[in-house]
Design a protein around this nucleic acid. Structure first.
Lengths: 223, 223
DNA sequence: CGAAATCTGAAGCAATACTGAAGATCGAGG
DNA sequence: CCTCGATCTTCAGTATTGCTTCAGATTTCG
């Protein structure tokens, strides 16, 4: 899961970042509106954690921007204000959920997972694709009812492929989703090849068929 | 077990808190409605002990809040009034049990345990999982009919794992459940490793197999 | 056929998990 | 109030696992 944290208070920002990184997500963070909009224009995120009160403007403009550009990223608003107005405004403009400071990290995580799930896979916690079954809450994956043990990268990769099933996904898109924005200057996809190979092997062993079709010069299609 | 005690009478509040803390539970307490609602919004509890008569409002609003937010925490109402009306109202709104002042701490404990059990494991006092047998009232644990002596932390941990059997639970989730809310900024899971190790060893010695499967980078699964 | 892209297995390195023992803390009993 | 034992936590050393890199094999496409 790839997150963007927009929060100007350094302590809170780092706490959130550290927590989600430990939980296995890719985090990027920024502390003002301008750099937030820059990032959103360039990259895709699974969920954006948005503080409303920012030094250079109202966080609502992020929602505006997403709407105008037809991006449908999940947005969770973080706000110090407990005002009903802000809440209604945020949800009307397109935020998916709302949490008020101070909050508990576990609750934040639960909310992020919930809205991401809702937007990506529908309202269920059980995700099924052909012979693959994923319990998103329990993080359990079975193929033909046999348990498949996956590493963090493999699990994230599988979710990404299932979310984009049938579509051709470029290697750049995969790399950016799984490793964040430090992959810009990359000159080799060796690490990606290795992870694909490992996931492919585990899936093939249990399903008896290859879920991946490689598109030469572009990327992969999950079928 | 993690409890929230909402009681404005300081003497009673501290007595209850002290008693349950000594019994090995994690307790948090507050003395008015406002701070109670704050806490409930932020944290998760196994059981909430709720006094109805509070300085800044009726305790029933706590039940309302839980209902509106789809939280299914156990609630035990403590009340000085012996009125049937209050009792009916409380249970209708979603409380799990009711106790009238004055009461014996042992009875309070029994009721708390009972409703927690009912909600978590069903109606029985004997909890069985594979070769493990737990008498929740007597706090006795046997494995293959042999008694297993556990410390408080180990016992709580075992219950938590059995409540989440088969699911992957993250280290953060375990830490939060067993140590409360000061674990956010934690930079090491050493203490968790140690407790897992000890519980694992005791279980393995009696059962002859390992109940824990470690998920590298994530947490554990109890099987 | 040849060049570029992809795949594969093995190796080094970094991160994470496990272990035993020592130090700190807590609670029961004198 | 003090002592002692049990429990909890910390720590340092070791083991394990996963991530990345790399070199060579294989495939694809012009």
């Amino acid at each position: 899961m790839k997150l963007l944290i927009i929060e100007d208070e350094p302590g809170l920002r780092e706490t959130i970042e550290k927590y989600f990184t430990e939980e296995g997500s890719i985090c990027e963070a920024c502390d003002d509106l301008k750099s937030a909009l820059d990032k959103i224009a360039l990259y895709e995120y699974d969920c954006i954690l948005l503080d409303i009160g920012l030094p250079d403007g109202e966080g609502f403009s992020v929602l505006d921007y997403l709407k105008r550009h037809n991006k449908n990223e999940c947005v969770l608003i973080i706000s110090a204000r407990n005002s009903l107005d802000d809440k209604i405004k945020g949800l009307n403009i397109g935020a998916d959920d709302y949490i008020t400071k101070p909050f508990h990290l576990a609750e934040l995580k639960a909310r992020v997972l919930a809205i991401f799930r809702r937007k990506t896979f529908g309202s269920t916690n059980i995700l099924t694709y052909k012979e693959i079954n994923i319990d998103l809450l329990g993080r359990n994956v079975t193929v033909n009812d046999e348990v498949m043990i996956l590493t963090k990268k493999e699990y994230d990769m599988l979710l990404y492929f299932i979310a984009n099933k049938g579509k051709v996904v470029s290697k750049n898109a995969i790399a950016e989703h799984l490793w964040g924005d430090e992959t810009d200057l990359l000159d080799s996809f060796d690490f990606l090849y290795t992870h694909i190979k490992n996931l492919r092997k585990k899936l093939t062993e249990l399903a008896g068929r290859d879920f991946f079709s490689s598109i030469y010069g572009v990327g992969y299609k999950f079928i």
